[in-house]
Write a protein that binds this DNA or RNA. Sequence first.
RNA 1: CGGGGUGUGGCUCAGUUGGCUAGAGCACCGCGUUUGGGACGCGGGGGUCGUCGGUUCGAGUCCGACCACCCCGACCA
Length: 418
Amino acid sequence: MKQSELFFKTRKEVPADADSINASYLVRAGFVHKHMAGAYALLPLGLRVIKKIENIVREEMNVIGGQEILMNVLQPRELWEETDRWESAVDIFYKLKDSRGKELNLAPTHEEEIVDIVRDMMKSYKDLPFAIYQIQTKFRNEPRVKSGLLRGREFLMKDMYSFAESNEQHQIFYKKAIPAYFSVFKRLGLEAKLTEASGGIFSKYSHEFQVLTEVGEDTIFYCDSPTDECDFAQNKEIAEVKEGDKCPKCGGTIKMSRGIEIGNIFSLKDKFSKPMKATFLDKGGKEQAFIMGCYGIGITRAMATVVEIYYDVTKNKMIWPAEIAPYKVHLISLNQNAEAEKLYDELRKNNIEVLYDDRDLSAGEKFAEADLIGCPTRLIISKKSLEKNGVELSENNVVKIIPINNVLKELRKNNEGR
RNA sequence: CGGGGUGUGGCUCAGUUGGCUAGAGCACCGCGUUUGGGACGCGGGGGUCGUCGGUUCGAGUCCGACCACCCCGACCA
């Protein structure tokens, strides 16, 4: 992509209404546009990051057998009444009436709808187990939005639902989901902690994937075992320990931290299938309610979390993890467009994602914007570099001049081992 | 939903005890000079001060209601 044609603008100043690092960065760098409190439009750069996050999530969910579908935003009142959630969840629903007076809700979650689909299709234990997921916009009328894209009223989420004939069968999939989730977060460049938590209205307990950082809304107690082998972690809402206690698992010391809940998994048992009469016939011909699990990952929240972790506020500098960077390579021409253009074409021919700054601006301005955009690899073609018949390559704070002919080789070398 | 704060060109802000054609920087347009860290000069365009109502000879400035945004709390599938 030529930067002269890219739909984006950066800002020199932090937006006055930004409530968080992630929002102020994403707006400043031209990744998103704030539409209203809790709702952000994704601009080309932001959308590229989101699409990459989505694809990582898809790949990992597919690995454990998840199948993707797409459900609906409009959900009728009758569906919610089957589980008594129309009245009880009133505050968080965006309720509306259509011109015929039909009462609807903008989907905040999809347990009811997936159960409705499954009870219509699946009737036998032979159909089980299976897991279905979607990536879709969720609408939640949060009483108070905050933390930029970390808690919005309209946001992207991956939600997966598993169906099993028994708790034993359910547990098999539940346990497969955990490493799949860790794979996702690792590829996003995030270190997540598996944390025991309350199940809210779903179930007594659940597991959350928490990224430990002070901007998080949750409070986590975890074992700071020096051997790094203990994985004890509990959300404050259910914690039986406090800071400084001995870890009940290994005897290490309990530490406290804030955390961003970037994913969660719940065992639902028959909480939804039973009231909705979603049943199958077991081997003995007996009617049984499906045993369910649900598995969420906040897609927009993941992007915001990566910003919180990777954005350097004091330097106005971002470096996106390689797998989700809007472009892998940022090629910057300092008044050497003839040479730069050749390299740009070559990179594109070799399927390397490259953003090419071909604009007629001062070097400082280009660098400042490049710092904000945050591509992991930067190539600079300048009079200085061309005198050595080369290109300046910077990656992970290492800068070196390499011959133009070696650029492809060098980029491939650096990508090995990832 | 309770408490608090803020609202002035696209952005960030200034605007004195109410007073004369409402300002700056950035951004934008034109010309020129620049070109390794958001460069400089000259010349331009753009706001009726969140909205509505009130007080006053006169309101960006005072009062009221409403709206929006932000903060604290409650809430958070």
